[in-house]
Computed example of a mutant assay.
Amino acid sequence: MTTLTAERPPLSAGAQMFANRLRKNLKELTRWAKREQIDCYRLYDADMPEYAVAIDLYHNEHRWVYVQEYEAPKTVAEARAQERLREVMSAIPQVLEVDGDHLFLKVRRRQKGSAQYEKQDAQAQFQIVPEGGSRFYVNFHDYLDTGLFLDHRITRSLAGQWARNQDFLNLFAYTGSATVYAARYGATSTTTVDMSNTYLNWAQRNMALNGFTGGNHRYVQADCVEWLEREARLRNAQQYGVIFLDPPTFSTSKRMESTFDVQRDHVTLIRHACQLLTDDGVLIFSNNFRKFRLDQEALAGLVMEDMTQATIPHDFARNPKIHHCWKMSLA
């Protein structure tokens, strides 16, 4: 984690060019966010390829700026990449009017296994931010991601709306934000499954923050692939009206007996999940693998609707491959 001081030296020509783009985005997206009552959104996402960063804004009583530098290709010299990053980080405080205590930098490299979710720091400092009428804990210090995937804002809302008066299952649940939406919209019960005890505790804290602490909200620490397979084999397994299935692209850990690859394993995963659906239930399947191809032939017999375009928020429109999403049900 990198926190910068609030020094405001004159901007270089490159930094000024970047600042101009940032101002343009800020003007347009601030109006949109105010109109849509959105407090956390992506301001910039490598709009200028030479400045390959993503910039997210989070607002509570303060503005928090979360910068992720994309790993430069091998064709770009390290010194040049560092110079461009310095230009980015010098422009941000001036344009966004934040000091170093509210500005954070992470480097997003190609992740292997569970590296995306591993701790990078141990400050355990959380902020509470609003989204969609609920509140969520985010952490700008300790992990590569903050605990709230902003590109799934619409997906979470749809999952919540469909979960009204239904039993809701959240798999690969991360910090349980979709579970919070389901509870807020009136799910009969929620089951939140994740292999990480850290994220399950985070999910429980998010639920408690919004007043959802009853016995109808269950948390299961388990390898989701193995848990689904076991549940699907049970004769009297619980059935769910809505299942939210958002697996990682690739995963491996000491707790797993084998690796998980979303392209290789998605058919089996979806088939097992559908065995837990009620007759009129809905499965929301999404992932962030840019080259993902759904094997529709192997999934014949399911009703499938591609919801990708409908679930890409306006602030991610410049990056339409940020995720894939389908709504599925039994034929």
Rank of each mutant, 00 (worst) to 15 (best):
T2W: 14
R8M: 13
P9H: 09
P9V: 08
P10K: 14
A15H: 11
A19M: 07
A19T: 03
R23Q: 12
E28A: 14
T30M: 06
R31N: 04
R31L: 10
W32S: 07
E36D: 12
E36P: 00
E36Q: 13
Q37S: 11
I38C: 05
I38V: 14
D39N: 06
C40I: 00
Y41S: 01
A46S: 08
P49C: 01
A52F: 00
I55D: 00
Y58E: 01
Y58R: 01
H59N: 02
E61V: 02
E61R: 10
H62Y: 02
W64Q: 04
Y66C: 04
Y66F: 15
Y70L: 11
A72R: 12
P73M: 08
E78W: 12
R80D: 15
Q82S: 13
L85V: 08
I92W: 08
G100W: 06
G100K: 06
D101F: 00
F104P: 01
F104C: 07
L105P: 03
V107H: 15
R109H: 02
R110M: 07
A115C: 01
E118P: 00
K119W: 06
K119E: 11
A122K: 07
Q123G: 05
Q125M: 10
Q125C: 11
F126M: 04
V129E: 05
P130G: 05
E131Y: 07
E131N: 12
H141P: 00
D142F: 09
Y143W: 10
Y143V: 06
D145A: 10
T146M: 11
G147W: 09
L148E: 07
L148I: 10
L150N: 09
H152T: 09
R153V: 12
G160W: 09
N165S: 14
Q166F: 11
Q166N: 10
Q166C: 13
D167T: 12
Y174W: 12
G176R: 01
G176M: 03
S177Y: 04
S177P: 07
A183I: 09
Y185P: 06
T188G: 06
T192L: 06
V193Y: 01
V193H: 02
T198W: 07
A203P: 02
N210V: 04
N210T: 05
T213P: 03
T213R: 15
H217D: 13
A222C: 09
A222V: 03
D223I: 00
C224E: 00
E226M: 01
A232V: 05
L234N: 14
L234E: 15
N236R: 14
A237V: 02
Q238L: 13
G241P: 06
D246W: 01
P247T: 02
P248V: 03
S251M: 11
S251E: 03
K254V: 06
K254T: 09
R255G: 03
S258I: 02
F260S: 07
D261Y: 08
V262G: 07
R264D: 12
V267M: 14
V267C: 14
L269F: 12
L269Y: 08
R271W: 03
Q275A: 13
Q275I: 08
L283Y: 08
I284V: 15
S286F: 09
R290K: 15
R293W: 06
R293M: 13
L294V: 00
D295M: 09
E297G: 11
A298I: 08
L299Y: 12
L302Y: 15
V303Y: 10
E305Y: 01
E305V: 08
M307K: 12
I312N: 03
A317T: 00
A317H: 03
H323Q: 07
W326A: 02
